[in-house]
Design a protein around this nucleic acid. Structure first.
Length: 306
DNA sequence: AACCGGGCCAACCGCGAGTTG
DNA sequence: GCAACTCGCGGTTGGCCCGGT
């Protein structure tokens, strides 16, 4: 905690810093309830607070907001954070928007203090204890198998720790389903076969899901073309058609290197129920905000704000 | 009981983007 | 077009808490 703000500063008409007093909280809260949001500089002044608008905004968002959820994170929330972080990187506000009642600061703190270290430890253990480290589909953690997906998730998380973006690692010849709900029941025996590395050069894009997969290779012009369809799903209850993807492309229409999809279908509902296939395009990066806004594929946690 | 170190978390800082005059 | 201002975001800091020694 920071030192409480110096009371003498108020007399000196200086802006206060440091911890908020209950009186300040009351002032801000009652002002916000009565007047709603506006210019934070005005709010700070009109509420009689000797704080900068920025400080007021932060206090409101991270502490006073009535829809905040209190208490520690549930396992479900933590899993979702890991999940979303693997997709979005350090875009805490984006992640927070998917966890009702949680703030970006809260999530960021959780990640930096807890999850990151946990993943790091797991990664270290798996990299040092696995006799089959050459085979990413098989991993041993404390004497037990971990799922194929979990392995990839950890690796992916480790990647994203050093980068705020989800740009492609050229060494990755396969991708996991980032939106697929974490579920340890996934067994490596049910995971699809890894694509032949010889088919996948740098910049390759692979859409892949459990129970069915199609491979797409990113052409030098960043066009997306179907290379092969390994197998078909028995229950093609959901079609992800060209238009859907064109909608996504529209989001990126001003992006000079946006993805272009000529024609393809998804035939596996699990792709999209579980979530969105990751799309990696060499140095390209999708407009994830737009993507997430336009397709509600990411699982939301539906909390009761208590 | 005192000390120490790591974890936790509130809050600050700096920067970029957007808006306004 | 430009400067000033505001907002929002991610990174970082630093003080309290708590368990271990």
């Amino acid at each position: 905690m920071r030192k409480p703000a110096d009371q003498t500063e108020k007399a000196n008409n200086k802006l206060r810093k440091g911890l908020w007093s209950p009186e300040e909280d009351d002032k801000l809260m009652s002002y916000m309830v009565g007047n709603g949001q506006g210019c934070w500089t005005d709010i700070a002044r009109n509420a009689g607070l000797f704080r900068c608008g920025k400080s007021c905004r932060l206090r409101w968002i991270n502490y006073l907001r009535p829809d905040l959820k209190r208490g520690s994170f549930s396992v479900q929330e933590e899993e979702l954070i890991i999940h979303l972080h693997s997709i979005l990187g350090n875009r805490w506000s984006q992640i927070a928007s998917r966890l009702p009642g949680r703030t970006d600061n809260e999530i960021k703190n959780l990640w930096n203090s807890t999850i990151k270290k946990r993943l790091k430890n797991n990664h270290h253990m798996t990299s040092t204890t696995s006799p089959n480290s050459a085979d990413p589909s098989v991993d041993i953690k404390s004497g037990e198998m971990i799922s194929f997906q979990e392995h990839q998730l950890m690796s992916f998380c480790m990647d994203s720790m050093s980068s705020t973006t989800t740009t492609s690692s050229s060494s990755a010849n396969y991708n996991f389903d980032p939106f697929l709900p974490l579920n340890n029941s996934h067994d490596i025996t049910t995971a699809p076969p890894l694509p032949n590395a010889s088919n996948c050069g740098v910049g390759d894009v692979i859409f892949e899901g459990y129970g069915g997969s199609e491979h797409y290779v990113m052409a030098p012009e960043n066009d997306l073309t179907v290379v092969s369809s390994l197998d078909n799903n028995d229950d093609p209850t959901f079609m992800f058609d060209k238009k859907s993807f064109d909608d996504i492309n529209m989001i990126n229409s001003d992006h000079p290197r946006s993805i272009k999809v000529e024609d393809f279908e998804f035939e596996n509902r699990e792709y999209l129920q579980g979530g969105q296939d990751i799309i990696r395009t060499g140095s390209d990066q999708l407009d994830w905000e737009g993507l997430l806004e336009n397709i509600s594929l990411t699982p939301y946690l539906d909390f009761q704000i208590g």
